[in-house]
Design a protein around this nucleic acid. Structure first.
Lengths: 109, 109
DNA sequence: ACCGGTACATAGTAGCGCTGAGTAGTGACG
DNA sequence: CGTCACTACTCAGCGCTACTATGTACCGGT
């Protein structure tokens, strides 16, 4: 993946995953393949799992273990109320940044 | 500054500064105060100087030393052709990310 | 002589994504 | 039955970037 994209994902990937999880519980492997289908083709598996561990530790998601038809049991993540709050803040932060950058791109400066 | 903003700035701050430099040579202190005026109130001076050292080392900017009326001489940075190329890539990367996030925010998923 | 504003610099820290490897369960194919 | 492919998760170590904290130095006003 481009170095620029790698750096830009820092801080945003978490929001992307939380947004995906909104009303849509999912497990790691599923999230990884979804991300790839969204154009983030080079997201490393390890990155997603590490992120999930982090947001679980930070109490933004609830976890439920479910047996899988194929392979080892799945850990299904769902956004909880703290996660929703956090996601809201994320959108606020993102909105500010996106607005600043958009005006930089169009106005020139 | 919020932790979210700190992480989100990784990868984007560089683009913001390069965009500011487009047709608008500036020195470190000036860039810092401009950033703060743009709402990035808590940008640390050290962050900007470190970034400038980096983009200079990467050959994205030309540097010229000019005496200042006040204080030590200024190091004035201006975007060169490599920097312009890099900035274009930045906008492409940013555009992709912004589009993905925008559709996540509105469509829900 | 002192203070506040201007201007630059750097060593150390922390967070996040990537690399690369490993562990394990399932089903299909020869 | 062995091996391959897919599913699913885990972990150690690395690189990059922003922050913290501190220091240097020049100038004008009081």
């Amino acid at each position: 993946m481009g170095k620029q994209m790698t750096e830009m994902l820092k801080g945003t990937l978490e929001g992307i995953v939380l947004a995906f999880l909104t009303g849509n519980p999912a497990y790691g492997y599923e999230i990884t393949t979804w991300l790839r289908s969204q154009g983030f083709t080079d997201i490393a598996e390890g990155t997603v799992y590490a992120l999930l561990v982090r947001i679980e530790k930070n109490g933004l998601v609830d976890v439920e273990k479910r047996p899988s038809e194929k392979g080892p049991p799945r850990k299904v993540y769902s956004l909880n109320s703290d996660g929703e709050k956090y996601l809201e803040e994320f959108w606020t932060t993102w909105g500010f940044l996106a607005e600043r950058l958009e005006s930089l791109r169009t106005e020139g400066k």
